[in-house]
Amino acid sequence: MSVRRFWASASTLILAATAALGLAQPASATSAAAGGYVALGDSYSSGVGAGSYLSDSGDCRRSTNAYPYLWAAANSPSSFTFVACSGATTSSVASTQLSALSASTALVSVTAGGNDVGFADVMQDCVLSGESACLAAVDTAVGKMNSSLPSGLSSLYSSIHSKAPQAHVVVLGYPRFYKISGSCIAGLSEAERSAINNASDVMNGVIAKQAADAGFTFSSVVDEFTGHELCSGDPWLHSVSIPVYNSYHPKAEGQSGGYLPAFRSVA
């Protein structure tokens, strides 16, 4: 996902203390390793922004620093299929990635939803077009979150269950982008940053509800990224960057310190 087609983030604290302390992983990690792991989703799962991209992944930009790759390296599942792809929507995950699933798949991870509501365009408007246009674009995206996104997520989750009926499915959310009243002295206004954060909360709430309705496990990353947002002084997210596709995506530290613990705690 790039600044033109990027997802790009209420939230539920799930065993964060265990993850933060690096304690023993759940026993289910053993069964998942025995049955195989498939990583689905968009650029937040493929690892755009984290560097070290697999040579055969092309524009999907699947990174060896992404949380699925890191989890697989640590747990040695019987099989690991990494099909998450930059720019993916709920419908494109369903149409192009689910062939990786089977009745023997034991563990699935997925991030999806940001591209469905046009958050790439939101961030472009916010960066280039001023506060009024930014706030209007955020409102439009929130409207999509509440109207069309639930059905897209529901359809995707139903298809995942049909393809991998025995799998433990972990749905991960998105981080808040900004620390409010943080260290940034230029760029977006506080009103814009607050609106974007609030939209992330709405997004995560919609995703969490649809995941629960499907019988899947939702894991928030908001707590893991708290203190590491943009304007925090120690951000795990890229701001506007070159190459542009890195913009508003997790750095390698965001994958290893944010997404991996959130996934590992419930995998």
Rank of each mutant, 00 (worst) to 15 (best):
K209S: 11
A164N: 04
G22K: 08
D139T: 15
A186N: 14
A214V: 00
S2D: 11
V266F: 09
T226I: 04
T105P: 05
L172S: 08
P175Q: 09
S220T: 09
A164S: 09
G257M: 05
Y174W: 04
S91I: 00
S194I: 15
A137E: 08
A19I: 05
T217Q: 11
K251G: 00
V202D: 02
C134A: 03
V206F: 05
A66W: 09
S247N: 03
S132E: 15
L101N: 08
M145N: 12
N65S: 08
L260I: 11
L156C: 10
G227M: 12
A167C: 06
L230V: 10
K251H: 12
S220C: 09
I180N: 03
S159H: 05
I242V: 13
T226R: 11
C184K: 04
V3C: 06
L153A: 02
F177T: 04
C184G: 06
S63W: 03
A112K: 04
K251L: 14
A191F: 04
E192A: 14
T226C: 06
S109D: 13
C60M: 00
L54S: 00
W71N: 11
S99W: 03
A39K: 07
Y157C: 04
E253N: 01
A208E: 14
A39D: 07
V221E: 09
S28F: 00
S31W: 01
A24K: 13
M123P: 01
A214M: 00
S232I: 08
G49N: 07
D56C: 04
A164D: 05
G130T: 04
A262C: 04
P250H: 07
A32S: 15
T81R: 10
H238R: 00
A32C: 15
V108K: 02
A211P: 05
P77D: 03
S63T: 11
N246Q: 13
P250R: 03
Y69E: 09
S132I: 15
M145D: 14
G118R: 00
L15Y: 15
W71T: 02
A10Q: 08
G227Q: 05
T96Y: 07
S43K: 10
F82Q: 13
L54M: 07
I160K: 02
G41L: 03
L230S: 06
L23H: 12
F225W: 01
S52T: 14
V202R: 10
A72E: 02
A10G: 15
P243M: 05
S129T: 10
A252D: 13
Q97E: 14
N197P: 02
Y245Q: 13
S2W: 01
D125K: 15
D223A: 13
L54R: 03
A34Q: 14
A66Y: 14
S194N: 13
P235N: 01
S55A: 08
Y44S: 07
G182Q: 09
A191S: 12
S46Q: 14
E131I: 09
V169Q: 00
G143I: 02
Y259D: 04
D116I: 13
T30P: 01
L135W: 00
S46G: 03
V202G: 01
I242K: 08
K144V: 10
K144Q: 15
S154M: 00
R264L: 14
N146P: 02
T111S: 13
T140P: 02
S99E: 01
L107G: 12
